[in-house]
Design a protein around this nucleic acid. Structure first.
Lengths: 275, 275
DNA sequence: GTTCCGCATGAATCGATAG
DNA sequence: ACTATCGATTCATGCGGAA
């Protein structure tokens, strides 16, 4: 199967108009945060953020399949000693647009940026807002199971005997599905809190998020051959991970520097055999 | 110094009118969440939550000292497959009321309620919203420093003040002192993510939150002799902890059953020497 | 006294069933 | 159609009794 990784140079508001309705399985992105300093990337001011974002999320809504999900990594800045409210207003605005606000995951950054302020601690978490188009959407929970706590080890010893007997009878009837069910007993489903370290800075291009972040949501919300979109590509982490995981992907970036950097780093489209 | 622990039976909207302006150093509370605890509290519906809460938070704003903080423990429930937005609207409404939304702490509940659903993982976190009246407020960061390193996190997370004292008296010479030396060596400031387990099972009266939660914020935002208010007292965790920590406290509870239960559990006002 | 094991129990959420 | 109630699912924790 050939995996297509297409990246575009431009504003996603315009570029997305060339993307058909209902064609994307997962949108994962970390947009430029609102920033006081006009000079930096994007440089949208907090008070303008919602009106800047909503026309774009309208396009996201259009291109997303009804079975797909939109995961938005965002965190409000501190402005004048207060947390800004633009993320709250954004959620409310997107719901009026037709989005369903399904869930808010927390990304707990284990090694957050150090620092000390008189009236504030280090900010060690970010929001991962999950939006959907429809109440029924694809979710492959088994793909992200995690090892259980300590007590499982002692539990398993006792269970194993009856399990084996059950497995034997099942095997006799020709189906071994229960084996994996029981073997998976040391695995549990995760919660809506993710513990990931921020990417170490020994890489030349510091990304906004570690590869584990898009990887987790790509596993959770897509299968191989599905289409992943990142409309604010940045350093390209999302499409790199998508390509590695055998998902088609579309990336859009407004800044030429980032665009060409990502383009050079990506492997060319190629045949990928799997099965 | 005598520590006063006053609890009132009634709706805080009315009861607070007897409390003077600018007289409270910390408000820590966990109001009944929308549609939760219906059997006991009647259950405020999500659509009515903001208009129910705002008149009360107006009183909170009045009684809080300019140097004080208001910490609100809350989490929105899922309604018809979506997260409700009443908490977001509440934040926006309180800012219009004059509150500053200084920070949002995350309480990561390591032992969240179990369950499996096709489109959702277990909810393992709650919000701890910090509001202030003024940009300058009291914050005693050194009081909540934590040991550094992985080993320290697991070993000492639960080491409360009483535990430390017990170690000292038990060993007398060597071990306790080693621990405290080691404690002093590399302490770090915490972040805005708190890891605490919920209290469950066989405690005499299960509280909505563990004692560590009010304890942490009482340490952070007050000194001995300051005044702590919990306008939705519930099982009384906040005032019990405040009393133990030598802070004056005011608790208000609308349900007679809870009120009398807490009243019976509290130690009578007494002379407390500290220095 | 320790360590180990069993068990109850949560600020949950969904889907089906009933008025 | 819209609301209220109920059963099923599931995992970390702390207590109490047992080895």
């Amino acid at each position: 199967m050939e995996i297509h990784t297409n990246i575009f140079l431009g504003d996603c508001l315009d570029t997305l108009k060339g993307i058909p309705d209902n064609s994307v399985d997962l949108i994962f992105t970390s947009p430029p945060y609102a920033d006081q300093r006009k000079s930096t990337y994007g440089g949208i001011r907090p008070e303008e953020y919602v009106e800047w974002f909503l026309p774009r999320s309208e396009q996201f809504l259009r291109v997303l399949k009804p079975s797909g999900s939109f995961v938005l990594n965002i965190k409000e800045k501190v402005v004048n000693g207060e947390r800004s409210t633009y993320v709250l207003e954004l959620i409310i605005g997107m719901r009026q647009q037709g989005w369903l606000w399904t869930e808010e995951f927390i990304w707990h950054k284990k090694n957050s940026y150090p620092g000390k302020w008189p009236n504030r601690f280090r900010d060690a978490w970010e929001r991962l807002l999950q939006f959907n188009k429809d109440r029924k959407f694809n979710m492959y929970q088994d793909e992200v199971m995690v090892p259980m706590g300590e007590w499982a080890k002692t539990r398993l010893r006792k269970l194993s005997e009856t399990d084996l007997r059950r497995d034997d009878s099942k095997v006799g009837s020709g189906f071994g599905k229960n084996i994996s069910n029981w073997l998976d007993r040391d695995m549990a489903y995760p919660s809506n809190v993710l513990h990931l370290a921020t990417e170490c800075s020994n890489k030349s291009h510091s990304a906004a998020f570690p590869e584990e972040l898009p990887e987790w949501f790509i596993k959770l919300f897509t299968q191989e051959g599905d289409v992943v979109l990142d409309p604010f590509l940045g350093s390209g982490t999302t499409v790199k991970v998508a390509q590695r995981m055998h998902r088609h992907s579309i990336g859009i970036e407004i800044l030429p520097d980032y665009y060409y950097m990502v383009k050079n780093q990506l492997e060319p489209s190629k045949l990928v055999l799997f099965g």
